[in-house]
Amino acid sequence: MKIVIPTANRPASLRAVLDYYGRFYPRAELVVADGSTAEAKELNQQAVGEAQVAVDYQPYDEDLPVFERLLRALSSIDRQFVIMGADDNYPVLETLEKARKRLIEKPEAMCAGGHLVHLDVTGPGRASARLDVVRHINADNPAQRMRVFGSLPFPTSYGVARREHVIARLEFLKSWYFRSFYELGVGLIDVAAGQYFAIPEVGFVCTSNYVDDRPSVDEPLAYLRGADQVLAMHDAALEHASRAPGFDEAQVRDVLSSVIGRRTAALAGAPTHQVVGFVDKAPYKTPMVDNARQLFADLFTEGTAARAQHADRFAFIAERIQQITTSSANLAQAGLR
């Protein structure tokens, strides 16, 4: 199982992630696809050379689009299962190993993964945490899978996936990227192709910070002005579903219309979770979702088993985020110094 890490112009962040693997998972096998400038590449090569983990370092021209870069990196991998990482995300490989075994047991499944904990550092001394709950999406036909997924979407790309499916996902993203619909679009492609199995444990700690991840300014009507991209996503999901067993075109079209309409309503100011009664029933109110919320609370509560299990990992990540946000290399690459 290989872990592919794209990076570009964030040398302190990449070093932090490599140090994390060296500290917690020294037997991991990493592929770093670097699209940085020459200056940042030099720092990244130094970090790779000092890493306490096996790294296949692959530098690419800085003008090569990220999804093309990742496709080239994947062409060098001969493993059946792949984890798509990032230079600011920290996996819990014990959980993802369970996901890999689940995929071996379930050949009809394309992806599997654990819950996502997001740590967002928004300024000096300011941070927030949030949870993305993964759920089983295991219906036999693609229309039902997309319906279940669309009722409470989550990022499906953080986890373990079959290599051929990751390639198909990246081929789609080569020609399609729309920020407002990215998570939904990728998820629909994933569950159109096959089942998703959830491991009810922490799978990734995903981070963002005010130096590396300055928010882009989207105009209020961007989701309407990008209607052609929404339609392209609809057509791609329909095409992927048409390859899967149990495909019914009328059903899939009906589901896509409903799911995309729900996302458009959310962007217009009417998110699903504000609908009266939504939080009192499935998919929000289920044992898996309830247990995930309790796990999340326990991570930040002294004396709990979950806190003890992940304390060293969280302390390491917190220390490295502090270093990243004061790194002269990252500040320079971000244009802040």
Rank of each mutant, 00 (worst) to 15 (best):
A192W: 12
A198H: 09
D190K: 06
V205Y: 08
I189Y: 08
R179D: 06
P200E: 05
Y177Q: 06
L188E: 02
S208T: 12
S208M: 01
C206Y: 00
G185I: 02
G185Y: 06
W176A: 07
V186E: 14
A192N: 10
R179L: 11
G194K: 11
G187T: 13
K174Q: 08
G187M: 13
I189M: 15
A198G: 14
P215S: 01
I189R: 12
R179E: 09
V186K: 01
S180F: 06
E183H: 03
H165V: 13
E201K: 14
D213P: 04
V211K: 07
P200H: 04
A198S: 15
I199M: 14
L184G: 08
K174E: 06
L184T: 03
F181C: 05
G185F: 01
L173E: 11
I167M: 10
F172Y: 12
E183F: 01
G185P: 00
W176L: 15
P200Y: 06
C206N: 00
V205N: 09
D213Q: 11
V166I: 09
Y210A: 06
H165P: 14
G187R: 11
A193Q: 10
N209Y: 06
E183P: 01
V205P: 06
F172P: 03
F197D: 13
Y196A: 07
L170N: 12
Y182D: 03
Y210T: 09
Y182M: 05
F178L: 00
L173M: 07
W176F: 08
I167P: 07
L188D: 05
F178R: 00
F204S: 04
T207P: 06
I167W: 01
Y177G: 05
S180A: 12
E171S: 11
I189L: 15
G187S: 13
L184K: 02
S208K: 12
A168S: 15
